[in-house]
Amino acid sequence: MTETLTRNDALVIDGVALNSRLIMGTGGAPSLSGLGAALIASGTELTTVAMRRYSVDEAAGGGTNLFKLLLENNIRILPNTAGCFTAREAVMTAELAREALETDWVKLEVIADEHTLLPDALELAEATEQLVNSGFKVFAYTNDDPVLALRLEQLGAAAVMPLGAPIGTGLGILNPHNIELIVSRASVPVVLDAGIGIASDAALAMELGCDAVLLATAVTRAQNPVVMAEAFKHAVIGGRLAAQGGRIPKRAHALASSAMNGRPDL
């Protein structure tokens, strides 16, 4: 039953059906082989990468080994613009990614400063507009701001990706109400991105109505990344099913689930 539901419930972005609603990042993994095992355990079909200078340094992925790893495992690549502080840098990075990786999908990150790693709303909007006009499918990493999320959609973003908490903090979803508000008004997919710490955070994101979850550190820096990746796989499926199942209303007082009539006199 579960498998039937999830199989018929693909996330469609830009005409591409993704059967897993868990989008993985690759940052923070100590080794490429460990990363590969975690990605496979997660069941992900879409995974982010950063664009950096070509280096044969193994710690940095070793030449194009990360690219090969993703191709070999049929995992679609979502290049990001991590490390960009201006729209100009982000657009340039996206153009390089399109040329190198042969995809017009891009996770657009335009960061205000290294301390908070929070998106710079003005540069983000500017870069979204430019990239959409250049034919990119923009996955906009944004603050958990319902107004900004809607503006990014109006600028042509293919998906909006509000943060749960700042990148790498593992603080979970700090403002569930805002995430619900973003979901309720969006007509493009909403992907909860950043701040996820543990499986229940991902389940909550899906219960709030998000279409997918993107995480990296929570798996790559877990004590056992493969086990944690599998936990997230199930959490995302569970949260999605819960969102579709229709939760009971919250009540102030208890409500017996066993009927009182027919109770024997004892």
Partner: peptide, 10 residues
């Protein structure tokens, strides 16, 4: 000149 490729991130 810059020659770039995909590395771990995001």
């Amino acid at each position: 000149l810059e020659i770039v490729t995909a590395v771990q991130g995001g």
